[in-house]
Design a binder for these strands. Structure first.
Lengths: 332, 332
DNA sequence: TGCCTTTCTGTAAGCGCTTACACAGCTGAT
DNA sequence: ATCAGCTGTGTAAGCGCTTACAGAAAGGCA
């Protein structure tokens, strides 16, 4: 990044305006002039400085994304869809993980200064900052969070699928349930799942919180739970990682799944399919969440739309072995 | 991003230079002046434009990362370590996935224009572009690739661990092997693994290529392989995803692992631990690869170092159930 | 009191581009 | 022959900061 538009202009014997016009295809340029310019560009290996372009255009051509943590497969998948579409739309993606960070406020503000729009997971950004971003009219899309004013929200359907799952488990004959990985923030995905499940099972299901939604936390909590006198017959987990932890705990305690205990997850991450018994879970359209977020953001940035949109995507119940025996085992 | 340093200066009754000095802490500012400025900053909610700062400073305070695909857990983990350290060092991270992209050349060049340094996985970037980046003195760190001039390289140890793995399998008594997911590019990680394994097993191991390193490809290739008349006793896979595919194939064909067939992977991704039988594999220090890459890049960017460094990190053999029975089963 | 330092602040020159505006030279219609 | 209307090009004003340099004010010391 050394050669500037001035050197190209000098070499081609034209003004910098002409060079710019030639390269961007704006305004008329005589064929001969164009050639001279392109030749000079070629010879000098000129690439316009992104900084100069952005400053002059007043836009970054970049999107930001804020997630709590990339460790789980869920966020990765969403990011994947997001990056793909953003890139198609000519935008770079700048990432920010808030996990274990102090100064989240500053980090997010810095990020906001580098991009034209921001996608944010759930409640990773403090509310006052969200308000500030909304106030400064930063285009915003939230994924996995309840609707709020001044920004798009995007989530996958939770309540209905939770109910379907609960009913399926009732069909297996279970009567004593636990919900492992109880909701931490109201309004987020897990909260909705819990509400949905409870609306069907009522007092038959008990909420068991875990500190994080991780394998380790699921394992510890499940071990404690399964050792208790009246252990549940089925454990509905807030996500697959917690469920995988529960499977490990059951295995360690010598409990056969699904014969002595049913376990279900949520998200359908890769390991869910490969665990044995394979994990019954609810598949979220993760990649599509990311892709849609990128498109929504684009609409907001370009001004194609200026009223917030709130979208809910459908999910799919993946019946596998961990919740009980089915007429014909499906190993998807 | 509306209010500029000029408005702050006017409101505080000082010049923009003083505002800048106050905010950056460069140069002396009288206590009273400082207060006036800070007050104005507060009232106007001023945040310096990243673009302006970068242009004036001549640096982006951002790092790029180029990966083929974020789908697998391996890249995610590396990215995680990278982002964490980059962020600590005050740099944002701009990502670029090359999977399924035409115009990789342009995308990478655009990325290069947005950052102060670049981390690149393996052979994701065409050689001529690499040469060009080296020529323009862009700080560069390659991960999982053989050393090359003008850039840092960072990889985890492959050959020795491959040999250790091969010897362990010989110890189990296996004599007929296949290497599933044969190397595509010479010089990358998988190539080294193959070389290492073969150096021990010689003609007893056969290379079986797959189109990609994915579960699906591993599954298909393994199915074909295991149906053949003289099927191998042990399948060494180029990575865990291929190995998981092989496990599925074995399951489908009714072959018991490890009694009738041993399978091993590489990387120790999350699903490896949760598969049943759990997958014997070689753990790479993925997160550390990312973290070190970020630090190395920082040295190159700041000029703390200007000679390339080539580092190899040690790996760990994770013995689990899929390669055969061990005295005391370890479920790590 | 006079002069030299220090301390503080302002001016202005970039950083590398885009683009509104002005202008020159042509073409073709009147 | 005249002039409106193009086309093609250059000039210069930003875009929002940082910082070298210069100048003013104030304090210290002989």
């Amino acid at each position: 990044m050394d050669v500037t538009i001035y050197e190209v202009a000098r070499r081609a014997g034209v003004s910098i305006a002409t060079v710019s016009r030639t390269l961007r295809g704006t305004g008329p340029v005589a064929p001969k002039t164009r050639e001279k310019v392109l030749k000079a560009v070629e010879e000098l290996r000129f690439t316009p400085s992104r900084l100069g372009v952005s400053l002059a255009e007043g836009r970054h051509a970049a999107n930001g994304i804020v997630f709590p943590n990339l460790a789980g497969p869920y966020y990765t998948e969403v990011l994947l869809g997001y990056e793909e579409v953003a890139s198609e739309l000519g935008r770079s993606v700048v990432i920010l993980s808030t996990k274990g960070r102090s100064r989240v406020h500053d980090l997010v503000k810095d990020l906001a200064g580098r991009v034209d729009g921001l996608m944010v997971f759930g409640h990773t950004v403090p509310d006052d900052l969200v308000a500030e971003l909304v106030r400064m009219r930063m285009p915003l899309v939230f994924v996995s969070r309840e609707p709020l004013a001044g920004a798009d929200t995007l989530r996958s359907e939770n309540t209905a699928s939770a109910r379907a799952l609960a009913e399926h488990l009732l069909g297996h004959g279970y009567r004593r349930f636990a919900f492992l990985g109880a909701p931490i923030a109201t309004g987020d995905d897990v909260d909705e799942r819990w509400q949905g499940v409870r609306s069907v099972l009522g007092a038959a299901i008990e909420a068991v919180p875990t500190e994080h939604y991780t394998v380790e936390c699921g394992y510890q909590a499940a071990k404690a739970l399964l050792r208790a006198p009246a252990r549940p017959e089925a454990i509905v987990c807030s996500d697959d990682e917690v469920a995988l932890g529960a499977l490990l705990a059951a295995e360690e305690l010598g409990l056969a799944v699904p014969d002595e205990l049913a376990v279900t997850g949520w998200d359908d991450i890769m390991a869910a399919r490969h665990a044995r018994p394979a994990l019954t879970t609810i598949r979220q359209p993760t990649r599509e969440l990311g892709a849609r977020a990128a498109r929504a953001l684009d609409e907001l940035i370009t001004g194609a739309r200026d009223t917030p949109k709130h979208l809910v995507l459908p999910t799919e119940l993946m019946l596998r072995a961990s919740c009980g025996h089915h007429p014909q085992e499906e190993t998807k």
